[in-house]
Design a protein around this nucleic acid. Structure first.
Length: 400
DNA sequence: TCGACTTGCACCTTTGAACCGG
DNA sequence: ACCGGTTCAAAGGTGCAAGTCG
């Protein structure tokens, strides 16, 4: 039985590790977007043209991850994505972004790919993730083109852009449109915005890439962490059949019975009802919270997970509630885990808007100038991220 | 024996065609 | 003929449990 302190340590370490992922991703990103002062050549083999210098989008272009509250709840626990399915498996939460400052009249294409965060293979042991060996090689070059591509900046900016059709698999023999991942490996999605009117100009047009650390996950063939399973069930409309029965509804379904045996008895009401906000399923899982000011219950949480309590899971029993990132349930030192690191402070204040746009020179710095203290040097159960990996050869595979 | 993985299942949402009435 | 709303069935997305494999 896990006590609160244990849960706190696990959650804090997971969240902190994700921050490390952010650092690593930043390094990774900056490594293939060398700054003006850098003499490094672009290690990314864009379109098979190694000597081509890829132009970047207007530095004012911004991308904002939506549903960040939900994403953060998952990553605080160590998000997992199922990759075994004959027809591929969708990502959940949905990868949804909103963009601004695009040229209204210019056409853009939006692409998504998923890349490894490190070169480790993991295993889930005694309720935590540990490194179990070296990673298997990643198959680069598979990316998902948003079906609305290409369209003008004004059209992209009209509404949020959802990549809910993206599918991941562990089988290279499956649909070529599926992104291939290795089980027990850590990944993070990347959003690419390319100024292009077709697939040909996509290979030469200005490009910017955005990474959101909340979206990192471990690919699995079966969920390892029960908390993740419960969080998915409670938030994914397609998994509604595994939720506990609500009052007045039939409760003799097989899955429900299974769940009943593993969950507390008191509870659940759909969180949307209790939150007094509209709940729209699947692709319409609108990110109302993403744009909402902190509620009273979240005002105290001035750090990275400041919004997570908005998703307080009313359907969750005591067990679940204690184990999810609910600032009310954790010692304050949990928050300090984020806040104590000054390097992350800006990110913590507005994580959803933090982007990897080279023109922003992340946090006013570059991969080469990130203070050493910003990179966690201790081991985290939910991974560690040797920056050197990204600065060397992890990103030299063919892209696009 | 154990962990990773596959497969079939029930339950659910989504989607789109068919239908109807204004 | 067109439009908007409703109904319904098929398709597809879930996690679970049992089985397979190395």
């Amino acid at each position: 039985m896990l006590d609160d302190n244990h849960l706190f340590q696990r959650a804090a370490s997971s969240a902190y590790a994700s921050m490390a992922a952010f650092t690593a991703a930043a390094s990774m990103y900056n490594s293939f977007y060398p700054t003006a002062s850098s003499t490094n050549t672009d290690p990314v083999n864009y379109f098979g043209c190694t000597d081509m210098k890829r132009e970047r989008l207007d530095p004012k272009v911004r991308a904002k991850l939506e549903d960040t509250d939900l994403w953060k709840r998952f990553y605080a626990l160590g998000n997992e994505m199922i990759i075994t399915n004959r027809s591929g498996r969708r990502l959940f939460p949905n990868f949804r972004v909103s963009v601004s400052e695009l040229n209204p009249n210019t056409k853009y294409m939006f692409l998504l790919d998923i890349v490894p965060i490190d070169d480790n293979r993991y295993k889930y042991h005694e309720s935590s993730w540990t490194i179990s060996g070296k990673a298997e090689p990643h198959i680069y070059g598979r990316y998902f083109v948003h079906p609305d591509s290409p369209q003008t900046g004004s059209q992209w900016m009209k509404q949020s852009i959802v990549f809910n059709k993206v599918k991941v698999t562990n089988s290279p023999m499956q649909n070529p449109n599926h992104i291939i991942l290795n089980s027990m490996h850590r990944y993070i999605p990347r959003l690419h915005i390319v100024e292009a009117s077709d697939s040909y100009s996509m290979r030469t047009g200005p490009l910017s890439t955005f990474i959101f650390d909340e979206t990192c996950f471990i690919a699995v063939t079966a969920y390892q962490n029960d908390q993740i399973t419960k969080l998915k069930i409670n938030n994914n409309p397609f998994a509604k059949g595994f939720r506990e029965p609500t009052q007045g509804k039939k409760n003799n379904s097989k899955p429900v019975k299974r769940l009943q045996s593993s969950l507390p008895l008191d509870k659940p009401v759909k969180y949307d009802e209790n939150l007094h906000r509209p709940y729209k399923s699947d692709s319409s899982l609108l990110s109302i919270n993403s744009h909402s000011p902190p509620t009273q219950s979240t005002m105290h949480a001035d750090v990275a997970d400041s919004t997570t309590s908005i998703y307080l899971d009313n359907s969750g029993g005591d067990h679940e509630q204690n184990s999810e990132i609910n600032p009310m349930q954790f010692p304050t030192s949990y928050h300090h885990q984020f806040a104590s690191n000054s390097f992350y402070s800006n990110y913590a204040s507005d994580p959803s808007s933090m982007i990897y746009n080279p023109a922003y020179t992340y946090m006013g710095t570059t991969s080469n100038s990130i203070p050493a203290t910003s990179t966690p040097m201790h081991f985290n159960p939910y991974g560690r991220y040797p920056t050197a990996v990204y600065q060397t050869n992890n990103y030299n595979a063919s892209f696009f």
